[in-house]
């Protein structure tokens, strides 16, 4: 029972969602909507579990006077401040909006922006035009980067047009084929999960 029930739950939930979408059976639409709401609710409990684990991990750091104890304290302080502001005062409260606008948004943007330095550094080390195909990758990357910047137009007026053509024609063909291939892969994996062939998410391996 401990092995079979989870597989049955997966199969029934998956088939129900597929049937509702591809067949116009009365009553299924409401049922599918209800199941999606249930999934959101279960996911919220999973989030609570993750929060408890995170808090416990950092509380252990503090009580054990770990070298990162101060950082753990900062993490817990900012987490609880956000939770208290959002849950007790509402998501429209000034404190919650302040945290979102002045901590989460600027830090998120700065972390993503910093990735451009890492990308440049990685590109410098990895990009070597050792073959024709590697050269194609390198040249396309340079054309797209220059063509999308104001300096590209100053270097040559044809550069932005070339970047646009590369994005709209060969890049479109490549991306489309990758999307179609990944779609086939995703359908295959989903079917394996629904039919119970793939049970790795339950820690049972494959059969």
């Amino acid at each position: 029972m401990k092995r079979e029930v989870p597989i049955i739950v997966t199969t029934v939930a998956g088939i129900f969602m597929i049937l509702e979408y591809f067949h116009n059976i009365p009553g299924l639409a409401n049922g599918a909507k209800e199941l999606q709401n249930w999934a959101i609710l279960v996911a919220a409990f999973a989030l609570a579990l993750a929060a408890i684990n995170l808090a416990a991990r950092h509380l252990r750091n503090i009580t054990a006077r770990h070298q990162n104890a101060v950082h753990s304290g900062l993490l817990l302080a900012s987490m609880f401040a956000t939770v208290i502001a959002g849950i007790f005062f509402g998501t429209d409260a000034r404190a919650f909006v302040f945290i979102f606008d002045n901590i989460i948004t600027p830090c998120g943007s700065a972390f993503y922006a910093m990735a451009c330095f890492h990308l440049a550094s990685a590109a410098y080390r990895a990009f070597r035009a050792q073959s024709g195909q590697a050269a194609a990758l390198l040249i396309t990357g340079i054309i797209v980067m220059l063509g999308r910047a104001p300096i590209g137009d100053l270097i040559h007026p044809y550069l932005p047009k070339m970047a646009t053509w590369l994005m709209q024609v060969p890049n479109l063909a490549g991306m489309r084929a990758i999307m179609i291939s990944s779609a086939i892969g995703m359908i295959g994996v989903s079917l394996r999960i629904i039919t119970g062939i793939d049970r790795t998410h339950l820690g049972m391996g494959q059969e």
């Binding site: 919220a44 989030l47 987490m79 998501t91 989460i104």
Partner: peptide, 21 residues
């Protein structure tokens, strides 16, 4: 310090969204 503050605030934000759900 800022890295940990950001992670804490982002985790807190997710918890608030989960609570709202």
């Amino acid at each position: 310090a800022v890295e940990h503050i950001y992670v804490g605030a982002a985790a807190g934000y997710s918890i608030v969204l989960g609570f709202s759900n």
